[in-house]
Write a protein that binds this DNA or RNA. Structure first.
Lengths: 330, 330
DNA sequence: CAATATCATATAAACGTTTACCATAATCAT
DNA sequence: ATGATTATGGTAAACGTTTATATGATATTG
């Protein structure tokens, strides 16, 4: 049904080669001929078939960003920056939302990796590179971001989860807190593990026990409130969480139960994206450089595409701990 | 470089047809032969070229969602629902972020419309359908959402912006407010125009003047605070805004200048997405059915794809006005 | 004016698949 | 044993482009 280059050629009374050259400006065509061709294109409403073109040329100018959660401002901030970087070089960005589902991720990789996109930026739901390896053709440029995977030989850009939270916990300890609770989630993502390690290590290095202070909570579970109930214990005077989602959930829970964060109980939350006003202004925050990470990932991908022999890069961007007393500065 | 079906065929000592049939289960192949082929595929690490396949078959099982702002929870909520609906039917979703830039949108349409995707769902940055018409091949299923465009002959799913805000303004008026300010933005999007009309009509129908009560503000401008300054006027006792972004910006501005929303001044804000905790709990809200809109759009697109002759559909989903006194119900 | 250079366009192969059609071998019914 | 049927798999065309090569027309040169 869609008109092809052949029909345009016939209509204009020239060869398909000439039509192609007119469209792509890829060799000189006499003004008169060009005019004829352009008129025919206009009249027939011809649009080159992008698939056929990519198929033939092997180039597509398409990059895919695989995100585990499109609704998370951390990723949308990254996406915006990646897009800005690559679109300056003529690439377009496709976004795939996996909802933290490794199967969906595998699916997206399979469908896009062979012939559709020129490169990937992946915030993976997988814990190891091994299952991914099979579905990526050799030499397809891939950059991993935010989460580190076992056995991953590809360029990887991470955030220093450990030291930011370490600073945060030390801040609380220096303020005199000894019973600092930590809420975490059940999965084994590197970010989750690193943050929890930062909490436990820091507590331990100050000889503070954590045995009955770590709580696993799933905001989507109906047991969420039940699991959080111990937070209301009198001895707990401060609390930390490993991400922005839990931040808001836990803060809301505390408020609803009459413990005002920042007043009755100290807290460290996460701020993802540059929207500080969303978060209770009287708690301390950890701020992740989502934008910088996005830019770096975009640049690294372009580098990798233009030079496949580059040594593997591993970059760690530091996150910022913002004590509540500095909140006005952001 | 990537291995082709031909090499697999050679390696397995069969024809390419047989390989193709093994891969696609598209005709019977003797178990022994099938085994040989599968082994060869495994050994060579062969992956079918998705582009070549789509090119040949004309089917791709790909839908594109064009969003003006990936960071806006309203759209990410929609996206999640669209994805859920279409993925149940075997389609995958590509997301394109236009950043409210019609040029970027045109670009994305051009690149995806011819041969890449099987359908579009578009929240357009264009005000009219005319410039879009040229770049969409006839019969490509397209659903427009959220924003109405002039001259648009395609299926369109909208939200009833007018009546939700009308209810809100009437609520304020019934509470005795007479000087209700309205902040809006400069663009001509249908959503913006409809909401402003709702404000002005409702005020007028109660014989309340609006001459010096409408303010144009751009949150990204350095003049933002200047433009908002009149909001601090003593006579203004209530205020409404046309979207969630302005909601938070304006609420923050008011708080910073010592006028506590919900106490010193009444307000109607927008809540986009199911994250009520982000918004000051003591103001009234308008809640848009982003999820329902996403589901409806997904279904309509599937309908349209399976039956191109369906009469054009225009659906308007109502939004909910939530008086501050009902906030606990959400 | 012939020989050559340049300009403008056409012809056809190729990209990696899918699939309609054809071919052969094996099995079966008579 | 013959012909019909079934099982299995090969051949080649086609999808819509791009592009290397070929070709004819015109302009330029000595």
């Amino acid at each position: 049904m869609p008109t092809s280059i052949r029909e345009v050629a016939r209509h204009a009374g020239v060869s398909i080669a000439t039509v192609s050259h007119v469209i792509n400006n890829t060799r000189y065509v006499k003004e008169e001929t060009r005019k004829k061709v352009q008129d025919s294109i206009e009249q027939l409403g011809y649009c080159p078939n992008a698939i056929a073109r990519s198929f033939k040329t092997g180039r597509h100018n398409l990059i895919a960003f695989i995100t585990p959660d499109i609704a998370n401002p951390f990723y949308s901030a990254m996406i915006e920056e990646v897009e800005a970087v690559i679109s300056a070089k003529g690439y377009r960005l496709l976004i795939c939302n996996t909802k933290e589902d490794a199967v969906k991720e595998a699916d997206a990789l399979r469908v896009l990796a062979n012939g559709v996109v020129d490169g990937f930026i992946i915030a993976s739901a997988f814990l190891s590179y091994d299952p991914i390896a099979k579905m990526l053709p050799a030499n397809l440029p891939v950059i991993f971001v935010d989460r580190s995977l076992e056995n991953n030989p590809c360029d990887t850009l991470l955030i220093d989860n450990y030291h930011a939270l370490q600073k945060g916990i030390e801040y609380l300890i220096h303020q005199g807190h000894t019973h600092i609770a930590y809420i975490t989630v059940k999965n084994q993502l590197s970010t989750v593990i690193e943050r929890r390690a930062a909490y436990e290590d820091t507590m331990a290095s100050h000889h503070l026990p954590t045995d009955d202070l770590v709580f696993i909570a799933n905001p989507l579970s109906s047991l969420f409130s039940d699991n959080l109930a111990p937070l209301l214990r009198e001895d707990i005077t401060a609390i930390a969480v490993p991400n922005a989602c839990l931040s808001t959930e836990v803060l809301t829970f505390l408020e609803e139960h009459g413990r005002i964060p920042g007043k009755d109980i100290e807290a460290i939350g996460y701020k993802e994206s540059n929207q500080p006003q969303y978060i209770n202004p009287s708690i301390s925050l950890i701020s992740q450089p989502a934008e910088a990470l996005g830019r770096a990932a975009g640049h690294q991908l372009l580098e990798r595409m233009s030079n496949p022999d580059l040594p593997t890069c591993r970059t760690i961007l530091s996150a910022t701990f913002i004590p509540k007393t500095d909140r006005h500065k952001i």
